[in-house]
Structures are given as C-alpha cells and as structure tokens.
Design a binder for these strands. Sequence first.
DNA 1: ATAATAGTGTCTCTCAGACACTATCGA
DNA 2: TCGATAGTGTCTGAGAGACACTATTAT
Lengths: 226, 226
Amino acid sequence: MQIRNMSVEPNFPMPIATVDTALLTLSGGALAVGLIERNRAPFIGMAALPGGYVHVPDDNSLEAAAARILREKAGLECRYLEQLGTFSGAARDPRGWSLTVAYFALVPEADLLAANSALTLQPVASLPPLAFDHASIVDAAVARLRGKSSYSALPAFLLPALFTLAELHAVYQQVLGTRLDLASFRRKIIDQEIVEPAESRKTGAHRPAGLFRLRAGQALPFQHRI
Amino acid sequence: MQIRNMSVEPNFPMPIATVDTALLTLSGGALAVGLIERNRAPFIGMAALPGGYVHVPDDNSLEAAAARILREKAGLECRYLEQLGTFSGAARDPRGWSLTVAYFALVPEADLLAANSALTLQPVASLPPLAFDHASIVDAAVARLRGKSSYSALPAFLLPALFTLAELHAVYQQVLGTRLDLASFRRKIIDQEIVEPAESRKTGAHRPAGLFRLRAGQALPFQHRI
DNA sequence: ATAATAGTGTCTCTCAGACACTATCGA
DNA sequence: TCGATAGTGTCTGAGAGACACTATTAT
C-alpha cells in the first residue's frame, strides 16, 4: 500500500497526525501515568505515552482512535476520556513537523491491574525522561485534572463504580493536594446530587459506610468550588 | 511540488490537518463571529470560518498558523487566541477523513472595523448554514467563552485596551446573558486585582469615569465565580 | 442648582471551614 | 461495653446580591 492523502489539494508538505493518551490513576496515594517503552525509532527504548496513528478506515473520530489504542495497549475501556489539546511543532519529532492530539483518561487502579496491561505506572511527581514532548502532555493532563477537580466530579473516575464518601473525600484530597473538611465535603457532594446512594453498604471492622455511585452524566461542574 | 509526508513510516491513508479560527467580537451588543465566503470546493460560496493549511516551513506551531491566517484574512493581530479543540471524522469533509485544530480568538469590534478585513460579522444567535462542521466549532467557542467568563477576565479582550468599569460590566452581562449587580462587580474586579487603574479618565457629558486596563497576564481565573 | 453618571456603605443570605457532637457497627 | 469509624448540628467568617446612599462632573 502506498502513501496516500485523502485530498488531492495541498501540494506541499503536511504534518503527520497522531493520537496520544495520558492515562492517569491513583497508585499508592499518588497520581501516576501509564507509560510504554517505545520499540522503534525515534526515541527507541524510551518511555512514552500510549499512542499511534489514526486508522482512517476504522476510527470514526480521534476519540475513537484514542479509545482503540487504549484497548490495544492497556486492554481496558476507560469510563472517562477527554480531549486535552493538540501539541505541534517542528521540533517535537526529529523526523519533522508533527502534530499529536492528546487525550487524558482516568481509570481506577484496580481496573488497570485487572487488565494485564502493557503499561507501567510511574508517579507523575518523578517521571523518567519521556519521548517527544510527552512530559508536557503529562503536565497538561495533571493540570487539567487538578483544575477541574475543584469544581467537578472528575476524581470519582479514579475510584471503582461504588465507593464510600470517605474514599471519595480521600481521592479529592490526593488529587488536589489539600486538606478538605470532611463534613462540608459530604454535604456538598450529597446536596448537589453529584452522587446517589447504592443499595449495599461497605462492611469492615466497624460501622459500615454507605456506598454511593456517580449520578448519570455527572462529570458536570458543581455550583460552587470545593 | 509533489505530495510528500514528513515521515516515511505510515503506509496507509492519513487524515489531512487544517486550522480554523472562530473570531468572536461584540457587535451591536451581541456576540458575533467573523466569517468568510469559501471561494473553492467543497462548500464553494458558503460561509466558513477563516482557516487553512499549516505551512510547515513557516509556521512554528499550530497557534502560529492560526495567527498567520488571521493576519492574512482579517488583517489583525488578536490579543487573545486560545486553542479550542480538534474536530475530526470521516463525515465532516466530503473529500474524506479530516481533522481541524480549532482556535478561538477575541477582538474588540473597533479593531476589526479598523483593519479592512475580508471577514463579515454574523451574530452567533442567527448564523447562516456554515461549511464543514464550522457551526459546531462556533458553538464550542461560544460555550468556552461563556463558561470561562464566569471566573476569568476573558470578556475584557472584547474591549479596547483602556475601558471603564461600567463598560466592562456591560460586556460581562452581554457575554453571560445575565444581570450582574454593578456594585458587587466593581468590588470583585478591583479587590481581586484583575484590572489596574490607568492614568486618565474617560470624559463624557457628565461625571467622568476612571479608565482601567487589564493587569499583565490576567486572563487568569478569579478566586470565586462572578 | 440640576441632571446624570460614577462610585460606596451596609444589610442579608448562602455556603464552606471548624469542630464538637451523636450514631452504629464489630469484637 | 468499648473502640472505631460513620455521619450530623451548629457556629462563624467570607463573599455576592440588593439597594439606598454619597460624589463628581457638565450644563
């Protein structure tokens, strides 16, 4: 098969387009990102975000391409996948001018461990050198997550589908890096109907906690900041 | 010159990448977007956002490409230009799978009138049919502007460099589509140092109002929502 | 002086943080 | 019954809306 552009119009060099995803999870109480070792040039042997080319015949959209690549390389479906931004320039790839549409995904660590993924987790606070401009992409993903966490339910996607309010509270604190008053947190999450009670309760050594799930469509913003 | 990709690797069809910008301004008290008539297929004769291909040798980044295209088609430099998102798919362009990196820009109407631009302004509330998926891009730009306006100084970029607080208040109301208490608005804008006083005052028929300018780097978020 | 616009003082309501309180379970 | 975790009541302080008030200019 030969190189073929989809249009006959532009008779000049075009940037190559790829898709990369920063898959974030909480591992050992710290934010971590899923990395894969590159098996070809450029940056062969270096850690990189999972990514690849759009498959024009198969992928209906860039988001579908990102989801397919996560399926192939991490063996999982992510409940949260959002376009982060497009990174471009002459310098980011030694082969020439290129462009990558970056996504960021949130996944509970349990899902990632269950799928026997080709990815390794690295805490975002101590990343190895990454291929291309992938370090910038991770930074942008973490910044986006932190920013949105103060007024949305995004951190809930780092937990399994059912969780206690104490667990959700802990995740918010870990993501935001600040202490939050538990009583106010409970009131806000419940009053604003971010979350709804599930049937069962979580049993442990002591008084069992109620279980909750995210309400449908609730990656939505809160009315006020946390 | 022949079609040439920048990499030798991918031996399969690649999406074509373009850049499009939704240039927003306030015209007659309503949000409007700058449109240009397409002079070639597809969608020839139809209104579209100003856009084009990346010029690999000239443009250092996608943002530089967007700025160049605005310079060429609107004859102006925008004080605010932000990446909006990348729109993609097999259906958006009849020639095949394509991808466009969309930007949105804010400009005072006076600047647009001064530059004798090839663009015509259309209120976003009553758009004609647009080429490609440009209607979705305009919707996304307006949503982004409205969303960020409740906690940032973005609307100030719809005004000239110097403005009164009454003018800024009016712009916020027009963008957000809600009434805002003027006293609270003044206090918030001043207390949070969004804005700094300029030397002179605006003179009119009655008591002159103080002039202000945006503080450096103040597209930044407020501490609390407006 | 008056009209008109610029700008302030102050009350109230809402909401988040602080923190002490009660509730409910296992052992 | 006790220890531990789950969950609530209530006070306080900060900030936004309401709105009446004062200030400063042109005519």
